[in-house]
C-alpha cells in the first residue's frame, strides 16, 4: 500500500482496522501524522453529528404507536361488530322469512284445515267412484286410473290460498285424508308430522297431493299414496303419460 492508497482509504474509512492500512501507518511517519489528524477530525465529526435529541422523543414514539395500535384495534372491533350485526340481521331476517314460509307451507295449511272437516273421518260407507271422479273434475282434474278402494268422502275445499279436492278413504279400517291441489307445484316429496297428524306432500301430475292421517301406520299412508297416484296419474305414471 502506498501513501496515496493509504490516504484514499483513510478518507473513506477513518476507523478502519485493515491490517494493510495499519502496517503502512507504522512504516510511514508522514502517514502516521495524517492518520492522527484524521482520527482527531473524525472525533470532531462524531461530536458535531451528535445533535441534541428532543426531550421525550421515545415516549412520544411509544404514545403514537399505542394510539395507532388502539385505533386499529377499535377499527377491527368495529369491523367485527358490523359483521356480527350483519349476521344477526341475516339470521333474524332468515328466521322471520323461514317462519313465514313455514306458516304458508302445505303441511301447515293441511293440518290447519282438518278441524273443519273432522267429521268426515267418521264416515265408513264407501261412495261411488263416479262421485269421486266428479269431485276431481270440478277442480279441473281428469282421473286417469281406477279409484282407490273404499273412498268415503269427497269435497271441494279451500286449503289456505289453494283450491283442493278433499277425499277420505279407509285403509285397513283407518281413515286417511288426501288433499289434491291442482296447479300447486312442489319441488320434491316431503314427510311431515305435526299436531298429531302424520303425512306426506307429493308432487303429482300438475299439482300436489297431501296425504295425512292420525295414528295411521306408514304402510297405510303408502297404500293411500299409491292408490291416489294410480287414480290421478294413471297406470303408466307421469313418465308414461308424458311420452
Amino acid at each position: 500500500m502506498d501513501c496515496l492508497q493509504f490516504r484514499r482509504q483513510l478518507m473513506a474509512e477513518p476507523r478502519s482496522h485493515d491490517p494493510q492500512l495499519l502496517a503502512h501507518r507504522e512504516e510511514c511517519p508522514a502517514c502516521q501524522a495524517f492518520w492522527l489528524r484524521t482520527q482527531h477530525f473524525e472525533d470532531q465529526l462524531e461530536q458535531a453529528m451528535d445533535v441534541p435529541v428532543p426531550a421525550g422523543l421515545a415516549d412520544r414514539i411509544l404514545l403514537a404507536q399505542a394510539t395507532d395500535a388502539r385505533r386499529r384495534q377499535m377499527v377491527r372491533r368495529r369491523g367485527w361488530l358490523a359483521v356480527a350485526a350483519s349476521i344477526l340481521i341475516a339470521v333474524g331476517g332468515g328466521t322471520v322469512m323461514w317462519r313465514q314460509a313455514q306458516s304458508h307451507s302445505l303441511p301447515v295449511l293441511a293440518v290447519a284445515h282438518m278441524p273443519k272437516e273432522i267429521s268426515a273421518l267418521a264416515l265408513t260407507a264407501a261412495i261411488p267412484d263416479s262421485m269421486v271422479t266428479e269431485g276431481f273434475a270440478e277442480r279441473g282434474t281428469t282421473m286417469r286410473g281406477p279409484m282407490p278402494l273404499h273412498v268415503t268422502y269427497v269435497h271441494d275445499c279451500q286449503v289456505g290460498p289453494y283450491r283442493a279436492v278433499h277425499v277420505v278413504s279407509r285403509v285397513d279400517g283407518q281413515p286417511v285424508v288426501a288433499l289434491y291441489m291442482p296447479g300447486k307445484m312442489t319441488d320434491k316429496p316431503e314427510h311431515f308430522s305435526r299436531g298429531g297428524w302424520t303425512g306426506r306432500e307429493i308432487p303429482l301430475n300438475d299439482g300436489t297431493l297431501v296425504v295425512l292421517a292420525q295414528h295411521a301406520s306408514p304402510d297405510a299412508l303408502d297404500q293411500a299414496e299409491a292408490g291416489w297416484r294410480m287414480a290421478i296419474d294413471g297406470p303408466g305414471g307421469p313418465s308414461l303419460t308424458s311420452i
Binding site: 496515496l4 490516504r7 484514499r8 478518507m11 508522514a30 495524517f34 489528524r37 484524521t38 482527531h40 477530525f41 470532531q44 465529526l45 461530536q47 458535531a48 453529528m49 451528535d50 445533535v51
Partner: peptide, 23 residues
C-alpha cells in the same frame, strides 16, 4: 487528494458547531 495543509485545516479550524455548519 488535497494538499497536506488542506487536510490539516479541519482539525485546527473549529469546534463542533463549525463542523456542523459544514455538514
Amino acid at each position: 487528494v488535497p494538499e497536506d495543509t488542506a487536510w490539516a485545516s479541519p482539525e485546527r479550524s473549529g469546534d463542533a458547531a463549525h463542523v456542523r455548519d459544514a455538514m
